[in-house]
């Protein structure tokens, strides 16, 4: 199986001097959940934000290396970032429903992409809300404001909003950090369904979640990729001392 994403010698330094990624190289498999975990400040979010060029919005002092998606270096300044962001969707830690109805939230990206046909949009709403396991809960109130939903429901609508664009890669940055265990379970179940079609990269909010969901797992510590392996191996028999310490809860 080929790698969907290949990261080569990626380093990144924010304008305040923080070295958030140091020479990271890894390949990320298609149709699998790859988990990036590690203590706070390890550079996990930074890496995710490189993958859809969201770091373009922040002040970055220096970055080097490349990220190949389907063989194309997306860090090249000539890359069409809008197209890239449609292909690489992102779900954030805190659900951020845009100030509009549930339906409008879900079709926001599609409309910007130029889709005007109502049938297509309706179809996308139903398909993506079903995929995000939220359809039954909201199908009768699609025109209500999305903020009126509970946090867990909002987060799944945010996931649906990303799915509506039919991306190829889905980035999730601690998507369940604010959610109760039941909502968390629903989101995780949705992820398992999603990996059949998509490449999923997840920053989990706990080691337990990492162990539950990971097909592959990467351990990050202060910007360095310490260990990268099959998920099962990583959480039963880590090779690095630092990884083991972290998994056993001995630090961080």
């Amino acid at each position: 199986m080929v790698d969907k994403i290949v990261i080569e010698n990626l380093s990144l330094q924010y304008s305040d001097g923080t070295e958030s990624l140091r020479n990271v190289s890894m390949g990320i498999r298609q149709n699998a959940v790859t988990v990036l975990f590690g203590p706070a400040g390890g550079g996990k979010s930074t890496l995710l934000r490189c993958l859809n060029r969201l770091n373009d919005l922040t002040e970055v002092k220096a970055s080097s290396g490349q990220i190949l998606i389907d063989g194309e270096n997306i860090l090249d300044p000539k890359v069409d970032v809008v197209a890239l962001r449609r292909k690489v969707g992102m779900v954030f830690a805190r659900p951020v429903p845009l100030p509009m109805s549930i339906r409008e939230n879900v079709i926001y990206g599609l409309e910007l992409a130029g889709e005007k046909r109502k049938s297509k949009l309706d179809e996308a709403v139903e398909r993506s809300l079903k995929l995000a396991a939220i359809w039954d809960e909201v199908k009768d109130r699609l025109d209500d404001p999305a903020v009126a939903l509970s946090g867990g429901q909002q987060q799944r609508v945010c996931l649906a909003r990303v799915l509506a664009l039919q991306p190829e890669i889905i980035l999730l940055d601690e998507p369940t950090s604010g959610l109760d265990p039941i909502s968390t379970g629903k989101v995780e179940a949705a992820l398992l369904e999603l990996k059949k079609e998509y490449t999923v990269i997840l920053v989990p909010h706990s080691v337990q979640q990492a162990a539950r969901t990971a097909d592959y797992a990467a351990f990050f510590l202060t910007g360095e990729l310490i260990e990268y392996d099959d998920g099962r191996k990583m959480f039963t028999a880590p090779k690095q001392r630092k990884t083991e310490d972290y998994i056993m809860g001995r630090f961080g």
Partner: peptide
């Protein structure tokens, strides 16, 4: 966060300003 989310969904800066 509205701006970040909008951009992450493939909006340009100007679209984000105009629509949100």
């Amino acid at each position: 966060s509205f701006r970040t989310v909008s951009i992450s969904l493939g909006a340009t800066r100007w679209q984000t300003i105009r629509r949100i």
